[in-house]
Amino acid sequence: MTSRSVVPAPRDSPNVLFEYLLRLGDDRLVLGHRLSEWCGHGPILEEDIATSNVALDLLGQATMFLRLAGQLEGKGRDEDALAYFREVVEFRNCQLVELPKGDFAFTIARQFLFDVHAVVLLDALSRGTHVQLAAIAAKSLKEAKYHVRHSGEWMLKLGDGTEESHRRLQRAVDDLWRFTPEIFAADDVDRAMLEAGIAPDLAAVKAQWEALVREVTERATLTLPDDVPRAASARGGRTGAHTEHLGHMLAEMQIIARSHPGATW
């Protein structure tokens, strides 16, 4: 079943770049929020601190991408207006990042799959033709390289740790796999960005991503699931068709801001 986008992304409109920046920003806003749910509940004090660091980096990146998006949109919306006053169907994150945090294995697997993608994508964006976007990407890339080092190490520890940790991580990878095709599925927005030299070819990104993921998962003694048939793979997040999880997450995230419209915090 195909999902219709609720807010169509026009090809030649100047808002294509706005759409693209929302995707970059929303991925990090949603993932940062999910990670922050671990604060005070981590498996050990040192890991609480480490997870918070990644969450902070992602939220900082989200702030930069969304701020730029708002500026380019030119309607006076800043990063908070975009984060706190858009509906579920206006969010442009991939579905992978909105899934509930699950157990620590699920969090690590999801983080790792995202981090590898981020490193490859941000590296390409930092060498792209849009100066401001490239600058944000370059700064974010430094952080992403540290994130993948952290999540990659945990993939090894959990995959090749105890029988229980291996079982949990394998199940997480199995459950997450059908959410990965979406992040490489190019649409009109991606094609416009590629034409403009702003963003890379997602097929190339996917190839690099898959090679790195395979390398680590093999060392972690995990097996990767078979390729997901198109019909079974999750998609639609890039055009506003999300899982039911995002609504609950945003209800919690946005409640205070929305209860006091116009207030300053």
Binding site: I44, L45, E46, I49, A50, N53, R149, H150, E153, K157
Partner: peptide, 20 residues
Amino acid sequence: SLHAADAEQALQNARDVYAR
């Protein structure tokens, strides 16, 4: 000081705890 299971983790934790 801090607690870590191995050297790589100790280094990462040290960066997060003492150098952030």
